[in-house]
Amino acid sequence: MSKIHVTTTVNGDEVEFLADPRETLLDCLRDKLGMTGSKEGCGTGDCGACSVTLDGTLVCSCLVLGVEADGKQVGTIEGVAEGGVLHPLQKKFIEHAALQCGFCTPGILVAAKALLEQNPNPTETEVRYWLAGNLCRCTGYDKIVRAVMDAAADLRGEAA
């Protein structure tokens, strides 16, 4: 089975790997690049734990082939904090106890960041529907939704 050489940009850094065309972008991130922050919870696009951005679009990396990333820009949880400075969403997730086991957290943060970039002032309903593809089994979502709303307010420069 011949492998394909892939050159892609992950969180701003150019990287290369050899991918079997059957391997997903998630497999490649985790097993070839050692970026295990993106998680596999289902492998069928139903849980969102593997959420990344691909050329700025939010996707499940388990539903993208590694070879499809060639020449594209990939954004993962490892790139959400910039230069060691946490993104307001990350701070608010800790502050609001919006995580318990933390396994869904990377995917939710990547998804929530994508939401706030296109909608800086989402309603609770908009947050809930945007995140409907990110399963969390620990929190009942209450504190997650609050953390996202509070981070949005923070980013807008409003007091919570």
Binding site: G48, A111, A114
Partner: peptide, 9 residues
């Protein structure tokens, strides 16, 4: 069809 993520694809 699917989630926000699936909508991206």
């Amino acid at each position: 069809v699917g989630s926000t993520q699936v909508q991206g694809r």
